[in-house]
């Protein structure tokens, strides 16, 4: 992959804080035009990774480049082309939204103010309100507006939807879709699975400072563990199903079979087809379950 296609590239990026772990040997390649989800629970190292990329904190070892430019040598140039939303955003709350955005736009050499107003309207944000008086969700909106307002090549968003009501989340997803359609790149961190599922092309899962998996979202879903409930016309015996590869936790109560299936359903469905099937209920895996599946695999291999 050439640097041109690779928007974010890290090699063994490590940040250690004394005994407390930061991030360890993070290897990432984010391609131009993709929406990358950086998924992990609080304290896993998502914010540490982002703050290292933006050069707020310096890596203990390893290196990183953005737009093919080394973050240490070219921090200024990379930041010029990045829109950033800090996690747990704090802004100058003695200003109004319009004043804050005006100040930030001057620091960036000007923005298209019409676009600012369009963003504000779409997010239902009142630019004239003093930020001090705003709810958490409305503060988050001004954070999003400032990140999007320059139409940056790369958006780095740390927990972007925290505090947003569901309607505004939808609008945010539409904004992300537009950014992607324009060939720009998004790197967003989240611990909210449906969000990642909804907007991301690829997902990196981080746990205790280590990147444990990077997968296409479809692969992640496909590898997921599904819970299945099959209702037969007549009672069946569990033995016929428990030997099928990928099928676990088989339980039979009279003519109802419940089990979990990892990966493809084909073998199970064919086995079930020998009987008269009344109903099949499949519980679509949530990201929580996908996530837990990954975590459990890790635990198993560690044990």
């Amino acid at each position: 992959m050439t640097d041109n296609e690779c928007v974010i590239h890290t090699e063994g990026l490590t940040k250690l804080y004394g005994k407390q772990r930061g991030i360890l040997d993070i290897d990432l390649d984010i391609e131009r035009g993709e929406v990358f989800g950086y998924l992990g629970p609080n304290g896993a190292g998502k914010t540490t990774t982002i703050r290292t990329l933006l050069h707020f904190i310096f890596p203990t070892r390893g290196r990183a480049s953005i737009f093919g430019l080394d973050i240490k040598q070219n921090s200024l140039e990379t930041r010029r082309r990045i829109g950033y939303l800090p996690g747990e955003l704090e802004v100058y709350d003695n200003l109004t939204g319009a004043e804050l955005l005006e100040f930030l736009s001057h620091l960036r050499g000007g923005v298209d103010w019409q676009y600012v107003e369009e963003l504000a309207a779409r997010l239902d944000y009142d630019l004239s309100q003093r930020i001090k008086t705003l709810s958490h969700g409305n503060r988050q909106k001004v954070g999003l507006i400032q990140a999007f307002m320059n139409k940056p090549e790369l958006l780095i968003l740390d927990e972007p939807t925290i505090g947003l009501d569901p309607l505004m989340q939808q609008e945010f997803y539409r904004l992300i879709g537009e950014v992607k359609a324009e060939g720009r790149t998004v790197f967003l961190s989240s611990h909210i699975m449906p969000e990642v599922e909804r907007v991301c092309d690829r997902v990196g899962i981080i746990r205790e400072g280590q990147l444990i998996a990077v997968e296409d979202i479809d692969v992640l879903k496909a590898r997921a563990i599904r819970r299945l409930e099959i209702r037969f016309a007549t009672p069946v015996s569990p033995a016929q199903f428990s030997d099928i590869p990928g099928v676990r936790d088989v339980q039979v109560h009279d003519n109802i079979l419940t089990c979990t299936v990892a990966g493809e359903l084909d073998a199970l469905v064919k086995a079930a087809a020998q009987y008269q099937v009344v109903n099949v209920i499949s519980h679509e895996p949530s990201m929580e379950e996908i996530f837990l599946a990954y975590y459990n695999q890790e635990d198993d291999s560690a044990a």
Binding site: L54, L76, R80, Y84, P86, R108
Partner: peptide, 14 residues
């Protein structure tokens, strides 16, 4: 301490 430095430094500003 007011945690506004991150937003400030995210701008192209040495």
């Amino acid at each position: 301490e007011r945690r506004t430095l991150d937003l400030l430094l995210s701008n192209p500003l040495n």
